[in-house]
Computed example of a mutant assay.
Amino acid sequence: MSYKYAIILGNLGNTRDRFCQGYKQNPSSEEMLKLALDRMPQIQGIELVGSWDIRPDNVSDMKKRLDDAGVACASIIPDTFGNPLFGKGSLTSIDAYVRQAALDYLRQMSEVAQAMDCGIVNLWLGQDGYDYLLATDYDQERSWLTEATRALASEFPEIRYALEYKPKEPRNFSYHARMADTILAAKETGCSNVGITIDTGHSFYAGENVAEAVVLAKRAGNLLYHMHFNDNHGSWDDDMIVSSVHFTTYIELLFWLKKTGYDGWISMDQYPYREDAVDAIAESIWWVKKYEQIVADHYSEIDALIRENDAVKTSRFLRGLIYG
C-alpha cells in the first residue's frame, strides 16, 4: 500500500517568528493553492487552516478548486491558536464566554469540514495549557476540555477529531502534550470518533520514540488518525525538512506505521522560514517516500531484526542501506 500525501496549505506562505515579522511575502490562499498544484504533483491532499484558508463564505469556491484539481481536503485545522480571543485558552479558558465562543467556532469549522467532504478536523489546541504555577485549576480545565470535545464529537459523529499533541509552545505546558496523556484525553470523552494526530517534530522534542507512540495509539484502539511530518534537533519545534537530522528514526516509524496498518494521510507540516517553501516541502515528501520504499523492500528483514534484538546486526543493516 502506498500512502496518500498531503501538505498544509499555509506552509507555503509567510513565516514569522518573534524576531522577524515576515521572512517572505504572504500570498493569498488561492495563490498558494495554485503553487501547490502546479509544482507538487506528488500530493493528493491539502490541509486547510480555518479562518486563514477556509471560512463559511469561501467553502464553495475552495471545494470547486480542489475538486477541479482532483485533490482532496485532507483535514481542516481550526485556528484556536492565532486568535487573541483565545490567548488564555480556548476550550479551557476560565471565561465562560470565551469557552462558548471557541466551541461555537469549532462547530462552524466542523460544518465547513462537512461541506468540504473532509472527514478529519485536526485539533491543535495550542493555547490550551498554562504558564505559571499556582495559577491554574488543572482538574477543572481538563474537565472543560473533555466536555467540549465530547460535545463536538457527539454532534458530528461522522467526523473524526484528531487531537494533535505538543509539549509546549505557545504555552509553557500544553494539556495535549504527549501520546500517553492525549490517549487519556481521547478516552475520557467516551467517543469513538476522537483520536490523535502525531506530529513527528512534536514527538521528538517531547522526548518520545515516535515509533513507540504509533504502537501506543494502536494498542489504545486504533487511535492514530493523522500524521504530520517534519524534523528538528530535539529541543524545539524547528519544523525542518524531513531527514535533516533523523534517519533511523524515520525507517523505524515507517515500519511501525505499516505493521500497525495505518492508512491515513501522510501530511507535511513544516515552516521553511528562509528556504523556497515548495522545494523544501517537496524534499520532505521525497524523503518520506524513500523511507516508505525502504520499508517495503526490506519489511521482512526489518521485522526479523527487531525480533532478534541484536543491535550490532541492526547497525550492519542500516550501514548497508547507506553504503551497499
Rank of each mutant, 00 (worst) to 15 (best):
I7R: 02
I8F: 02
L9G: 01
R16H: 09
F19T: 07
S29D: 02
E30L: 05
P41S: 10
Q44W: 00
I46R: 02
G50C: 06
I54Y: 04
R55A: 08
D61Q: 15
K64Y: 08
D67T: 10
D68T: 12
A69V: 07
A72Y: 07
C73D: 03
S75W: 01
L85V: 08
F86V: 01
L91Y: 02
A96Q: 09
R99Q: 13
A102L: 08
L103C: 12
D104L: 10
Q114D: 13
M116P: 00
V121W: 11
N122D: 14
Y130I: 12
D131M: 12
D137K: 05
R142F: 05
W144L: 03
E155H: 09
P157V: 11
R160T: 13
A162R: 10
L163K: 05
L163C: 04
Y165E: 04
A177H: 06
A186W: 03
A186Q: 04
K187R: 13
T189C: 09
T189K: 12
S203N: 04
S203C: 12
G207A: 09
G207E: 11
N209Q: 13
A211Y: 07
E212W: 09
A220T: 10
N222K: 14
D231L: 02
N232V: 02
W236V: 04
H246D: 05
F247C: 06
L254S: 08
F255D: 08
W256P: 06
L257M: 13
T260P: 06
T260Y: 10
Y262E: 14
D263H: 13
S267T: 14
S267K: 04
M268V: 15
P272V: 00
Y273C: 05
A280Q: 06
A282S: 15
E283L: 01
W286I: 03
V288R: 02
Q293R: 15
A296G: 07
Y299R: 07
I302M: 15
I306D: 01
N309T: 03
D310R: 11
K313P: 03
S315V: 02
R316P: 00
